[in-house]
Measured scan of single mutants.
Amino acid sequence: MKGKVVSYLAAKKYGFIQGDDGESYFLHFSELLDKKDEGKLVKGSMVHFDPTPTPKGLAAKAISLPLE
């Protein structure tokens, strides 16, 4: 699924993505496929991810940034 980063707290390594389906997904650095892309996780960045339901809500897994 595609989505847009709505927040990312680099110090805490987490944030949120708004998916194309309108839902909010929890984003964690550990799910970023290329850790070098962390600096690109800023508000408004477009990402691809696997939407995954968890006991705490919806989460983004296997997060990647589109090729530039």
Rank of each mutant, 00 (worst) to 15 (best):
F26D: 02
K2Q: 11
Y25E: 00
L27E: 00
K12F: 10
P53I: 14
P53W: 15
A59C: 11
D21S: 04
K36F: 08
S45Y: 07
P51D: 02
I63E: 01
A60H: 01
V47Y: 01
K13M: 06
L33E: 06
V6Q: 10
L27M: 12
L67E: 13
G19N: 03
P51K: 06
S24G: 06
A62D: 08
H48M: 15
D37L: 09
L33F: 05
G57E: 01
K2V: 11
G3T: 01
D20M: 10
G15P: 00
A60F: 00
E31Q: 12
A60V: 02
Q18V: 12
K40E: 04
L9I: 14
G44L: 04
D20P: 06
S45R: 15
S30E: 09
S45G: 08
M46I: 15
Y14N: 03
V42G: 07
K35M: 08
P51M: 05
L32R: 00
K2D: 09
K13Q: 07
Y8G: 01
M46V: 15
G22F: 05
G39M: 13
P53R: 14
A59G: 05
E68Y: 12
G57C: 04
S24V: 15
K36N: 13
A10W: 11
K4L: 11
Y25L: 01
Y8K: 02
L33I: 12
S7V: 15
V6I: 14
G39R: 13
A62F: 10
G57N: 03
D34S: 08
P53G: 09
D50Q: 15
K35W: 09
F16V: 06
P53N: 13
L65R: 05
K35C: 08
L67D: 13
K36R: 13
E23S: 09
F26I: 06
V5G: 00
F29L: 10
L65D: 02
A59Q: 13
A62T: 07
F49C: 02
K43M: 09
V5E: 02
L32I: 06
L32W: 02
L9C: 15
A59P: 01
Y25C: 02
V6E: 07
S64N: 08
H28T: 08
L9T: 13
P55S: 11
A10I: 12
G19I: 02
L58F: 09
V47M: 03
T54L: 06
L65I: 13
E38W: 07
L67F: 12
F26N: 02
A11Q: 11
S7W: 15
F26C: 04
A59S: 09
M1N: 05
D20F: 11
H28A: 12
F49D: 01
F16C: 07
L58H: 07
H48V: 14
K13H: 10
I17H: 00
K35E: 09
K12M: 10
G3P: 00
K56Y: 11
G57Q: 03
D50P: 00
